[in-house]
């Protein structure tokens, strides 16, 4: 894991570090963007804190997706982009997940759009979002086998043809 973040004096990072302490594994500036790597168990609490504290006010979920770092361990990373409109500030939260236990709490209760984003993430990578109300495939079709964006999914793999059942 790279520890190449530049140190930065930022109130948001200070606030989450003060509140969550060890759960913030690493934080800083990456090419001008605010980034924090946080522990998977605490992600829901951290996002609640970021969203609901009046002085932080990250009301917008800009993006949520998964990165597959195979063969690194832990293999997966879920990335959240949160945006605060009044202060025009953005923070990127990264959560590292092991292949054996690739699951993380859902944030559909916090941001409505997380419903589709998490469905897409599950569809493409097989990361389970615990507590998601309707975790089914979004882009691929139901009988599709496997998770196509994983790096060990061969690009030329064929899937069985499906059609309407009579």
């Amino acid at each position: 894991m790279s520890s190449t973040f530049e140190p930065v004096d930022n109130n948001t990072l200070k606030a989450i570090k003060k509140k969550f302490g060890d759960a913030v594994l690493e934080a800083g500036l990456d090419k001008g963007d605010l980034v924090a790597i946080v522990s998977p168990g605490k992600i829901h609490d951290i996002i609640v804190f970021l969203r609901d504290s009046p002085e932080l006010d990250f009301k917008m979920l800009i993006d949520l997706f998964v990165v597959d770092y195979m063969p690194r361990k832990p293999r997966f990373e879920v990335v959240y982009h949160l945006h605060c409109l009044p202060r025009n500030e953005r923070i990127r939260l990264r959560v590292q997940l092991d292949e054996k236990k690739c699951e993380v709490d859902t944030i559909t209760d916090l941001y409505s759009v997380a419903n589709w984003l998490e469905r897409e993430a599950w569809d493409m990578f097989g990361v389970v979002f615990k507590g998601h109300p309707n975790l089914k495939r979004l882009l691929m079709y139901e009988p599709f086998e496997g998770h196509p964006l994983r790096r060990d999914y061969p690009i030329n793999k064929r899937q069985p043809l499906i059609g309407p059942k009579n």
Binding site: S2, T4, D30
Partner: peptide, 21 residues
């Protein structure tokens, strides 16, 4: 070089962002 980057542009429909590793 190794690393991650996110950059967004204002596309016609809104923020078009790419995140590359």
């Amino acid at each position: 070089p190794k690393g991650e980057a996110y950059h967004a542009v204002e596309a016609a429909n809104g923020e078009l962002g790419f995140y590359v590793v």
